[in-house]
Amino acid sequence: MPVSVTRRIISAEAAFRAVEAAVARGRERGVAVVAAAVDIGGDLVACLRADGAFAASISIARDKAYTAAVFGASTDGLSNALKDNPVLHHGIAIRPGVVLFGGGLPIVEDGAVIGAVGVSGGSEDDDRECARAGVAAALAA
């Protein structure tokens, strides 16, 4: 019986593409955002802060990415999945580094989560759209 497993993780190159694309989409939308890309364990691989983005958005973007990676779901999708169980929703929400509002998306390659992108600094719609751009760029070969 094997005592180890192999897991794929996002490369630094793909993470850099993701954060650059997310921040660029923010510029297109007229918002200064922070984008973070993490690996499957939620560890930071890349982070980019647009000129004028709030300093507080750095940790929020990273937490959104962490949440999406370790749960394998979008941050707001996870919140919606938990909404019918208020005790569980609250219990998950108070965990350190967990964010349950829009802007965090897992990066899925061939059915496997390899990392995630989190974006903060705009509205939830802005953050979601920027995260989508980041995921698309990460997966572009």
Results as ranks from 00 to 15, higher is better:
residue 87 V to G: 02
residue 16 F to S: 08
residue 98 V to G: 08
residue 103 G to F: 01
residue 3 V to A: 05
residue 103 G to W: 09
residue 5 V to F: 15
residue 19 V to N: 09
residue 3 V to K: 12
residue 105 L to I: 11
residue 129 E to D: 13
residue 85 N to P: 02
residue 48 L to M: 09
residue 56 A to Y: 05
residue 123 S to G: 02
residue 8 R to E: 14
residue 141 A to R: 12
residue 17 R to C: 04
residue 67 T to K: 00
residue 99 V to H: 02
residue 60 I to S: 01
residue 35 A to H: 06
residue 1 M to L: 15
residue 122 G to I: 00
residue 91 G to R: 02
residue 123 S to D: 12
residue 63 D to P: 12
residue 73 A to S: 13
residue 115 G to M: 00
residue 12 A to D: 11
residue 42 G to D: 09
residue 108 V to E: 14
residue 99 V to F: 13
residue 81 A to D: 12
residue 39 D to N: 10
residue 126 D to W: 07
residue 8 R to L: 05
residue 6 T to S: 10
residue 52 G to K: 03
residue 58 I to L: 15
residue 96 P to Q: 11
residue 102 G to E: 13
residue 109 E to A: 08
residue 53 A to W: 08
residue 27 R to K: 05
residue 30 G to V: 04
residue 108 V to Y: 12
residue 59 S to H: 15
residue 13 E to C: 01
residue 140 A to S: 15
residue 24 A to D: 11
residue 84 D to A: 02
residue 57 S to D: 10
residue 19 V to H: 03
residue 54 F to K: 15
residue 118 G to V: 02
residue 39 D to W: 03
residue 128 R to N: 14
residue 21 A to H: 00
residue 7 R to V: 14
residue 59 S to N: 11
residue 128 R to C: 15
residue 31 V to L: 01
residue 84 D to N: 10
